[in-house]
Write a protein that binds this DNA or RNA. Structure first.
Length: 201
DNA sequence: GGTAGGATGGGCT
DNA sequence: GCCCATCCTACCC
């Protein structure tokens, strides 16, 4: 499987998909293929960050230079810099002027695995290549230069793969936050070995 | 198998 | 000045 073959067997997810309730988008992104150039993988782990009283969301304190794209039209990338070293990818949801985005936490590598391994020398197993929000941006070479990028055209897109197999979905609290820490807004492909944090039971 | 601590810099009060 | 939607290494069972 390479990216050319993947493109033949899949369609880019349209903007209307993103212009919905954030939690629904987060759930429905599972099983879709995140592509950046030659590398791609199946989304297996997501988190919803809502508007309103979700104080864990970057948009909670309103529009700033950083959070502007979260308030913009759906289907765009929100990429932010964290802990001085890593970048995280979010996909903007909800209609324009309504904040909301989905953090992509992990992918199961599909194409361009050799390229991803070069970019992630610390990963000793395929399971470690992109099993975290900072790992997958490194593996796919996604940076702040792509902040605001349109996810419905160009190198960075999400695709619907027709050979996608069925799976069960597990819902848990979000990882690594302190505010609204018990809200069940994380969506995981149940039993998948590539998720960012194993769920027992 | 497990976890504690450090790296490292931008955003916001 | 403090917080932070993380990751890796070293070290310990």
């Amino acid at each position: 499987m390479d990216t050319r073959e993947l493109a033949r067997e899949s369609r880019i997810v349209p903007r209307s998909f993103y212009s919905r309730r954030t939690a629904d988008v987060a759930r429905d992104l599972l099983g879709k293929i995140l592509v950046n150039g030659p590398a791609s993988g199946m989304i297996v782990d997501t988190e919803a960050y809502l508007g309103g009283d979700d104080l864990a969301a970057h948009s909670a304190r309103g529009v700033t230079d950083r959070t502007r794209v979260i308030f913009g039209p759906p289907g765009h990338a929100y990429v932010y810099f964290i802990y001085g070293m890593y970048e995280c990818l979010n996909l903007v949801t909800e209609p324009k002027d309504k904040p909301g985005c989905v953090l992509i936490r992990a992918i199961e590598p599909l194409t361009g695995i050799d390229v991803m391994q070069k970019r992630r020398p610390a990963a000793r197993r395929i399971e470690d290549l992109a099993s975290g929000p900072g790992k997958l941006t490194r593996a796919l070479s996604i940076t702040r230069a792509q902040n605001g990028a349109d996810m419905t055209s160009g190198n960075l897109v999400v695709r619907n793969w027709k050979h996608q197999r069925q799976f069960e979905i597990e819902v848990t609290p979000r990882i690594g936050i302190t505010k609204c820490a018990d809200w069940p807004l994380r969506y995981v492909v149940k039993g998948n070995r590539f998720v960012s944090w194993f769920v027992s039971g």
